[in-house]
C-alpha cells in the first residue's frame, strides 16, 4: 500500500483506518501455502464453496462458479472440504508448484 511510504505526520492517528473496504487493498493471498484448484467438469454449481469461503474468494458469475480470487484466498481449504463428496470439484495443491 502507498501509505507505507508516508511520514508519521500525515498518517491517521492511533492506527485508525478512516476509509471503508481497505482490506481489499491488503493482499492476503501471499499467506497461502496451498491453493484450491477448480475442476469445471465435476462442478455442479451448488455454490457451497462460495457460501463457506471466509474471504469472499470464490467469484460467481451468472450464478455459476467462475474462478478463485488468488489475491485474497488464504488457502484454508474450507471450499474443498465443503464441496460435495460425490463431485469433489476442488483439490488443494501445494503453492510451490505455482511459484
Amino acid at each position: 500500500m502507498s501509505d507505507e511510504s508516508k511520514s508519521y505526520k500525515v498518517l491517521p492517528i492511533g492506527g485508525l483506518i478512516p476509509k471503508a473496504g481497505s482490506s481489499h487493498d491488503y493482499n492476503t493471498g501471499t499467506w497461502r501455502s496451498s491453493r484450491p484448484v477448480h475442476n469445471k467438469d465435476n462442478c455442479i454449481n451448488c455454490l457451497f464453496c462460495w457460501i463457506y469461503c471466509p474471504d469472499s474468494s470464490v467469484i460467481v458469475e451468472d450464478e455459476k462458479f467462475s474462478h478463485f480470487d488468488y489475491d485474497h484466498c488464504k488457502g484454508c481449504g474450507i471450499c474443498q472440504f465443503e464441496c460435495p463428496t460425490k463431485v469433489k470439484a476442488i483439490t488443494m495443491e501445494s503453492e510451490d508448484k505455482y511459484r
Partner: peptide
C-alpha cells in the same frame, strides 16, 4: 510497516 509511526505520533 506502521507501528513505529503511531508511537512517534
Amino acid at each position: 510497516n506502521f507501528y513505529i509511526e503511531m508511537k512517534r505520533q
